[in-house]
Structure formats: C-alpha cells, structure tokens
Amino acid sequence: MTTPAVAAAPDERLARRSPLRRLLGRPELGALLGAVALFVFFSLAADAFLRTGSFSTVLYASSTFGIMAVGVSLLMIGGEFDLSAGVMVTTSALVTALTAYQLTLNLWVGAAISLAVTLALGLLNGLLCVRTRLPSFIVTLATFFMLAGLNLGVTKAVTGNVASDSVRDMDGFDSARAVFASDLAVGGVTVDVTVLWWLLLVAAATWLLLRTRAGNWIFAVGGAADSARAVGVPVARTKIALFMGVAFCAWLSGMHLVFAFATVQSGEGVGNEFYYIICAVIGGCLLTGGYGSAIGAAVGAFIFGMTNKGIVYAEWNPDWFKFFLGAMLLIATVVNLVVRRRVERSS
C-alpha cells in the first residue's frame, strides 16, 4: 500500500520495508503455509480428495465452522472469549423451530424472533463481562451451561422430546431454505449457500477491521484496553458489540441448521465453541487479544474442514481427527509466535 505522500518523499526512508517482510508480518501467513501443506498432503494421501465433489464437501464443512469463526475471531482480537458460542447456535435454531411451530407462525417470523433473542444473548454476555469486569472465560462458561441446560429443558418441556418438531411443511420453509441452506451450481461445482455467506462475512469483517474506525477500536480494546479508554475509545461499547457479532454469526448458523434439517436436536453444539476458537488461533489470532485477522480465521476454518474431511477420504479412522486438530493447534501457535517475534525484532 504505497501512498502518494510516500512517493513524494522517498528520501525520508533509508530502507523501505521489503514486500517479503510485510508479508511475513501478516497474521495469516502461518495458516496459509499450513493450508498449502495440508492440501498437498491429503492430495497425495487420498485419491478421492482431489475430486470436485470432495472439494465442495470440504468447503461446506469449512463454511459451517468458518461463519462462526468470523465472529469469534473478531471477539478474540478484541481480547475476549465466548464459550457459549457453540450452544448459542442451537439455541438460535431452537427458538425459530419452537416458536414458529407452537404459535403456527410463518418461519420468517420465527427467524426474526430468533434474531432478536440471539442478539439479546450476545448483549447479555457483553454486559455481564464489561460490568462485572470478570474474565469473559468465566462469564461465558456460565452462560454456556445455562444455555445448554435451557436448550434441553425447554425443548423437552415443550415437545416432550429431545428434538424440535419438523417445520418442513410450514409457511416460509422453502423460501428460507433457499436463503440459508440451499446449494448452487457454480461452473460445474456444487457450492453450498453457506460458503457464500461465509465469504461475505469474511470480506465484511476484513473491511471492518482494516478500513473503519470500529476496526481500529477492536484492535485497541484487545491490545490495551486502558490505553484505548484513555484516548477516548468507548471500550465497553466496542466489546459489547463484538459479543453481539458472535451472536449474529450464531443466528446465521442456527438458521442453517433449521432449514437444512427441519428439526433441531437440542443437545447439539456442545464443544463446537472450541473448534471456533481453534480456527481463529490457527489463523493467527493471539489468545491475549490485539492481533489477528478475519482472513486468517477463514484459512483456519479451511484447514479445519480439510482435516475433517481429508481423514475420511484417506479412509483413516475418524477418531484421529481430534489428535490432528490438537497437533495443528500446537504447531500453529508456535509458528505464529516465532513469526511475530522475528518480524518485531527485525523491523
């Protein structure tokens, strides 16, 4: 990114930072290298991996986690965690399915109610964190258990079952399915609509982070909240908005669940929050906040999807998946650390 001013006064800088060093300074570099290596690895290890059908399966798996990873990575750059993100997806789906079914509403109305409820949950998480000043890890651990319990309890109380009733025949199902859970043929490849949502969210989040004031504030509240407050950044408001961003992603994912399967299993989602965090960390987000990128989180989700499906195509026991994921998390964290240290020292 050269600016006219730089070009006008080249004498100021003895040595400009080389493009290579700039590239090395990007948070997503480690993830990108890892993704390429994994792609090559699975291409060699599994014949089925390179078929176009397999590719759309991998992309689909990546997108379902990638959508959440967008919100989670922004929150993490802002210095907070949300352990309730996994079950919030289920909550969001359940609210749509249960209210629409019980009150015989158009499913779009159910989706709107769910949006309001889910954003309110995000607001609650955010308010609890900024008001109590407790670590978000504890606050959202509490809301995680509460939501997990509510999902099961309310569903059983309302339907007498662990799953919601099917909403397949209700008004609005087909049009909502087209928006949240359809697939399209793009040049002979089937692409799930979630992939488009994912790419859209990543683009929006990247723009937000790098080109807007809000993005500046997100990095600042994650990197040094007190300093940010001292120069006039509204720290509490920024953090609350980030929790609501996660909630929005949870709503989108929840809508995908409802309209892809028509019924919602109330116990689902537990444990997924860690996968979102892993995507963000593999993508270069610092656990301590203040550093990371949405594109990195997307690459992290892609790595996640490739590993998840690649192991199946390679016809290995899927039990190995978790081992691989853990190992990759470890490697990614170390690589990020090394890359960042080196760049900071040499710049």
Binding site: A224, V231, V233
Partner: peptide, 26 residues
C-alpha cells in the same frame, strides 16, 4: 503513554480521533 504496542504508529496516533471519509471509511 496510553499506546497500544501492537498497533502501527499511525493507527496509534489517530486512535480515538480517526479521520474518516464517506461511508465511514478511514
């Protein structure tokens, strides 16, 4: 000093008083 160590110098300089163009673009 109220600076955010990992952020670029120019972002720190304008932090909290960012100069924006149309559509909220920095």
């Amino acid at each position: 000093l109220a600076v955010v160590p990992l952020m670029p110098v120019w972002r720190n300089f304008f932090l909290g008083s960012e100069k924006r163009r149309r559509l909220g673009r920095l």
